[in-house]
Amino acid sequence: MSGSVEIASQVAPSWSVRTVMTRFGIAFALPLLLLLGGVMSPAFLSPGNLSNMLLQFAPLAIVAMGQCMVMIVRGLDLSVASMMATAAVIATGFSGADRDVASIVAMAMVVAMAAGLLNGFLVTKRQVSPFLATLATMILLQGFRFAYTQGAPSGNVPPFLRVLGSGKFHGVPYNALVLLLLAAVLGVVLHRSGFGRRIFIVGGNPVTGRLFGIRSDAVTIACYVISSCLAATAGLILSGYVGLVDNWVGQGYELDSIVACVVGRVSLRGGRGSILGALIGAAIIVILANEVLLLGIPIQAQLIIKGIVIVAAAAVYTRRDGS
């Protein structure tokens, strides 16, 4: 039952107060959290701090959007962090001058597509559980990365990527502009295009999808490829932010992107989620992490808070759905 209703509500969203509240109620947590931070410390709401938070927000948000699309087709992508690190290693694999940026991006995207295709192939054609398939890809990427760098990556990040990852244009980080562009494109693709509608139908119920003549497997594979490519993009950006590269750039982003999606009301069971939700979830994580620092709580407590937030958010949503 819920499957078909789900599809209907996704295709033709109603904009009554109640539906908006259930779908985007979490958005109201954002101003509250910002206000809370402002009360705790005036420095929190200073333009400098806000712009820094935006800088940290972009890579996570980019990964979370990909995770969101995979989760909508009933999947999970554990390989994103490994993909990010692999892209970062690729970023330093060339001479470190700006003329190589095109090769770096091309190389990273080729690897990302291969990883995404492998994920999608295992999940659809071999019916491996997404958890396991992406876990295998994660280890595979990690192995290739270590074999390539011999455990000790070296080389420089091209200046262009550095500016992209850490530079600001009148206080607005360049990476936030990249995020804005990607979010706009993905938002349209997921919520306003025929392809996006197919994603929701396949996620809601793959069998229904097949009956409609949708090539469920192709749609699912596409989602995994998109997720890998976004992770690679975030990895390149993050390598520019960090400036130097180790084998673990992006570590923890698989957890964080899943937390962001769950908080942003993307359903683990598939068929439900939105780009906006993923962005809001990512924003909440970044703001919370920042406030933990402001409060002078030891930084380790961030992990504890993240853990509580994900369980609490999931519990609240389950209760509300009554399932």
Binding site: L268, L303, I304, K306, G307, V311
Partner: peptide, 13 residues
């Protein structure tokens, strides 16, 4: 999956 993921983060903290 979610509960133990959260618990894992809490325990690491």
């Amino acid at each position: 999956l979610i509960v133990t993921l959260g618990m894992g983060a809490i325990l690491q903290g």
